[in-house]
Design a protein around this nucleic acid. Sequence first.
DNA 1: CGACTTTAGCAACGCTGTTGCGTTAGGGGG
DNA 2: CCCCCTAACGCAACAGCGTTGCTAAAGTCG
Lengths: 364, 364
Amino acid sequence: MHRIAADLTFLRDYNEALVMALARTWRTFERNTVSDATGLTPQAVSKVLARLVEEGVVAPAGVRRPAIGKPAGVYELVPHSRYAIGAHVSRRTVRMVLVDLAGTVLWSRVMPLPADFTPGDLLDGMAGLIDKVRAEHAIDGRLTGVGIGMIGPLDHAAGTVRDAHRMRHWHDIPLGAFAEDVLGLPVHLDKDVTAGVTAEAWRRGAAFRDAALIMVESGVGAGLWLGGAAHRGSHTNAGEFGHTVVALDGPRCACGRRGCIEAVHDAAVEAGDVARAAEVLGVGVVNLLQTLDLEHVVLAGADLLRHAKVYRDAVEEAVRTQVPRADWLTVEVTLSSLGEDVIAAGAAMQVLDARYGIPGLAPL
Amino acid sequence: MHRIAADLTFLRDYNEALVMALARTWRTFERNTVSDATGLTPQAVSKVLARLVEEGVVAPAGVRRPAIGKPAGVYELVPHSRYAIGAHVSRRTVRMVLVDLAGTVLWSRVMPLPADFTPGDLLDGMAGLIDKVRAEHAIDGRLTGVGIGMIGPLDHAAGTVRDAHRMRHWHDIPLGAFAEDVLGLPVHLDKDVTAGVTAEAWRRGAAFRDAALIMVESGVGAGLWLGGAAHRGSHTNAGEFGHTVVALDGPRCACGRRGCIEAVHDAAVEAGDVARAAEVLGVGVVNLLQTLDLEHVVLAGADLLRHAKVYRDAVEEAVRTQVPRADWLTVEVTLSSLGEDVIAAGAAMQVLDARYGIPGLAPL
DNA sequence: CGACTTTAGCAACGCTGTTGCGTTAGGGGG
DNA sequence: CCCCCTAACGCAACAGCGTTGCTAAAGTCG
């Protein structure tokens, strides 16, 4: 994040990451397919593959015998060559998962946290769970780091929790640094919804360029993936989708405004009208589509998944009827493929992404 | 847009663009200041500067004599070394501007267009204006291209107008290709609001990372600049901010939904209540801030600028009172520094940006 | 006038992807 | 059975990028 100009190191890392991305989406591939997809010469791909095989993240996997000509060497991703751990911190629990390089969740546990838990409480719990997963899986030496996804506001770049809502001991806590000390591993801290959308993006590959993960779980939020990267905004505060107004004269929201999606939605839920709640969410999703022109909408969150079909149908209906009809305007609405593990899994994948994802250049 | 992997050419272009960006924001600079800002070694900066001086876009500008040590060579951007022309196509007029490499508007004209004008009508008009600007300014050989900003929907990558609202002759028109044929210059086609926000970004430099240009001019829209680049969405359709719902039971909008910002806003304007209209826009802006966490909000558009103070005050008030109070959450609200030229100027700057801006890598 | 500081630039270097070309592993035709 | 064709592979030389090492230049200061 401090180097700005590009040098040969960046060039190498970038092209390596490109090949890794293809390896992840294809799982098995050849030198020439990579060459065609990237524009690199076959010779260059050979050099990159040699480095990746050396690292152990890619391995030869036999040959393909074409009808005519010399057999082509086949390669494949080695999912178990690298792991990452992810944690989803909510108000009462911490959920931890183990994820491999392919983005597969191999292990998942939930642990209750004391009411009004402190950073120390959290890290003790996390350390315990990490010991457990280490006992159950032989991952030593291949563990890339730990990702933490939690409610904001927080500062992603600094790794600091600014002021977690309704939690007493969480004001200006350098959780990233604390966790690195206690756990002895690299730590990535991010907002829960941003972590969640990273999970979807990492698993779906390059086709996933502009998308939102809509999350309903003690609040309404949206993780944004724009132009092929997580969008966090200027202060890591993007995604407060639940606090956008859809009813100018609606009920007062905890945030001070009137008629926020969250306020209207929650009122409907409390009145027992989940269908109406889902409908309101649908309006919000279409607002998001109008503003950002997304191609994928992924639904997640415990409160939503409890009525998955209702929500999904309502959002699909809203997209179908409220977005101006045009054949070129395609939007795909899906439920998260990871269920309640999305946030934790995404936090883990952020760690993998930092190391094996396509690098960006630090801004000027 | 077809090469994906990074090679030495990319590396060189990227670092050159980096130096150009600094030259644009600083106007006058030295080898070591660039070195410090970019992380390049002074030696590398020398090489880059030599290339830029050779191209003519940068020139030596004397020396600075420090209190002690050898005098440092000073360089400066040569604004008049490159020009671009921009066009803002609206329903009844085309506005064209001449812009130099520094983003200064040197010339501006508006020309009426016939009702229900055709692509041919438009290009004839544009060609005439280009002749005029060529007669008045000696720009031959230094004209980089022509940018066109207009209402959507359109396809930025293909240079095609898909279906301009309420215009008969504008369905699936490859305007970019047409214009390149007629004008004999490279052409960039984009949505009006996206062009507008590019103007602000190009002039403000690197500090401008996450921002929106709110535009009120026969409709309400928002150009988005996210993470240091224009955000167009999956189908070049982002920014339909005016068609986000803020009043679930509000008046029916032309788009088919109820209570869109545009519908509520326009109703207030028609009732003569500009203050109320501005207030509604303010709610919309705060919605945008909650969703995207922007640092800059720029106000523009003929209908807005006619009541500039009312709108600006209302939006500032909304930001001050409706965004959850926090000292770290800074948002700057300003009026566009380019007035009614923003769109056209931005369209021109997109051409400059394509050639001299910081290049991105084509996605996988 | 010599020591010191700051800037500048030449030259060699390491590393990237690229290019040129010979090699390898098959099939098929004579 | 041999030769030729095809397709993939890989060694070696190469161009071009930023980096490093070192020397020279242009000032100030004691």
